[in-house]
Design a protein around this nucleic acid. Structure first.
Length: 497
RNA sequence: GCCAAGGUGGCAGAGUCCGGCCGAACGCAGCGGCCUGCAGAGCCGCCUACCGCCGGUUCAAAUCCGGCCCUUGGCUCCA
């Protein structure tokens, strides 16, 4: 089977065919940098990252663009808070840096470009002008609005009729609008102090003062700021093309954001804006979604610190990108179990390959066949709309095959083990899992110390002092170091990764 | 109210587009056995689901059609 994806536009799972058979233009709707990224963002990022990796695995050259919205009232509302910065752009930049660092810690492939709104105002203005010239937009009191009645397909992504769409944007803007569903492409003036007040945190600058730091730009309609939706159209066209292959984003953006992107882009270019629209579903916790606005989130930084990258990625890919996923201590602990099972099998296989018991003449046909089958299953799963959960299952089957092969055997199938190790490394990396994370100097030191303690413990065991030996093991365990006694002596695993 | 997604074992979560291989994957939890000084890990086996409810189509439905109930998301900033 070739790659199939579920397209929000049609509601169907379709074969994926990029415009250019060798290249994929991928745009991901990034975030507004006004809060620390949370696990919900991480879930989408990781899924997009896995899409990116799988497309490359299939041989495509992926041009991946991901924007940062750095012009927004909520950012202005943070001015003066903590050490974020003294004006809108400083605050935005400090969150951009934090976001990029969170992304690195999640082992995400870098996008080709991370465009910012503030750096694309000329392109935005051009686009708005085009829309005005073509009669799709109109100016009103220095602001420019998109006229939804002029765009026949309005509502095609979210499946809504224009009559059903009550209104968008600030209620007080309505008087300036011809149709309640019209949305702002360009907003006159600066930022409104009331809007700041709404999002302001303790310790931030006074709204009046914060407003003064908001950025504004000159335009044919006077001083103002870009509207929320137009940026993605302008940036994706600038860095990719008029027609994208893959446009990905969170489910909560379908309406109005993505709907508006389609309207303004297609009205301006007369070309299809994106051939495939993919939407990542949201986390569910205690029967509601996780989100910045509800404040019920876990930051990426805390999560990485607590669980580590591999556990987190195992967790985040434990469901399909387009199904909601339950966030709880139990579900994340379960992911940890799964990752550790994989990791232990990997280590066992890697050790066995290097051991003198691995013989090139030994052949376990069933073992090899199982690994081969798991490889195929992994590919089938990924091609089936990036079914990461099934892909994980395939990996786990390799783990079981390894353990089973190693069980009670004197001699090992060298080639079979090598193939299993390679399968885990190669397929694992599609999910962004790393079995061979570089060991830091600190970890090496810790390892040396653990070796020392285990030597002492072995002596105690030989002397029959099991009580003392168990104590040592318990104490190591309390530090998160897992000790296992095997026929070849004790082995251990350090807590992180 | 309108739009969208979903309701599968103790938990979690595939499968539903292309009906039979699904009495239902993988994993976690639980149980039994092996291994072990013990424990853990591991191996082998077992356990628990007729797939929201009702009706229909079909030789055959978790999968198709109709109705109903419930949950979540969007319609305001949001991945």
């Amino acid at each position: 089977m070739t790659l199939h994806v579920t397209n929000t536009l049609t509601g169907e799972t379709e074969p994926f065919e990029p415009q250019d058979p060798d290249n994929v233009l991928l745009y991901y709707c990034g975030l507004t940098v006004s809060d620390p990224p949370h696990l919900g963002h991480a879930r989408s990022w990781v899924h997009v990252d896995v899409m990116h990796r799988w497309l490359e695995f299939l041989g495509y050259d992926v041009r991946h663009v991901e924007n940062f919205t750095d012009v927004n009232e909520k950012i202005v509302a943070r001015v003066g808070e903590d050490d974020l910065g003294e004006d809108e752009s400083e605050v935005a930049e400090s969150y951009v840096e934090r976001t990029l660092s969170d992304m690195r810690s999640l082992n995400l492939l870098r996008a080709e470009v991370y465009p910012r709104v503030s750096e694309h105002v000329p392109e935005i203005i051009d686009l708005v002008e085009t829309l005005v010239e073509k009669g799709y937009a109109y100016e009103s009191n220095g602001s420019v609005y998109f006229d939804v009645t002029q765009f026949d397909d309005y509502g095609k992504l979210s499946n809504q009729e224009l009559e059903e769409i009550e209104s968008q944007g600030d209620p007080d803007e309505r008087s300036e609008k011809r149709h309640p569903a019209d949305f702002a492409l360009w907003k006159a003036g600066g930022v409104d102090a009331d809007a700041i007040e709404e999002h302001r945190h303790e310790g931030a600058a006074e709204p009046e003062k914060a407003c003064e730091t908001a950025q504004t730009w000159d335009s044919p309609w006077g001083e103002g700021r870009p509207g929320w939706h137009i940026e993605c159209s302008a940036m994706s066209m600038t860095h990719l093309d008029e027609t994208l292959d893959l446009h990905v984003g969170g489910r909560d953006l379908v309406f109005p954001h993505h709907e508006n992107e389609i309207a303004q882009s297609e009205a301006a270019t007369d070309a299809t804006f994106a051939n495939y629209w993919l939407h990542c579903e949201l986390f569910e916790m205690d029967d509601e979604k996780m989100s910045s606005s509800l404040g019920n989130f876990v930051t990426v930084e805390d999560a990485v610190e607590r669980w580590g990258t591999n556990v987190l990625r195992t967790f985040l890919t434990a469901g399909s990108y387009n199904s909601t996923q339950l966030y709880s201590d139990e579900t994340i602990a379960e992911a940890e179990e799964r990752w550790e099972r994989l990791e232990r099998a990997y280590e066992a296989a890697a050790d066995a390959v290097d051991s003198p018991d691995a013989r090139t003449k030994v052949e376990d046909a069933e073992f090899r066949a199982t690994v081969e089958k798991a490889r195929e299953a992994f590919g089938e799963a990924m091609n089936d709309d990036f079914n990461t959960r099934e892909a994980q299952s395939a990996l786990l089957e390799v783990a079981t095959a390894i353990n089973s092969h190693l069980e009670g055997r004197e001699e090992y199938d060298y080639r079979g083990l090598r193939e299993a190790v390679e399968a885990l490394e190669e397929l694992g990396s599609v999910l962004g899992l790393s079995f061979t994370g570089e060991t830091t100097g600190e970890a090496n030191l810790a390892g040396d110390v653990v070796d020392l303690v285990l030597d002492v413990r072995e002596q105690e065991r030989e002397d029959g002092n099991y009580e003392r030996a168990d104590e040592l093991r318990d104490e190591l365990e309390a530090l998160g170091i897992e000790v296992q006694d095997t026929d070849d002596g004790p082995t251990y695993r350090l807590p992180s990764e």
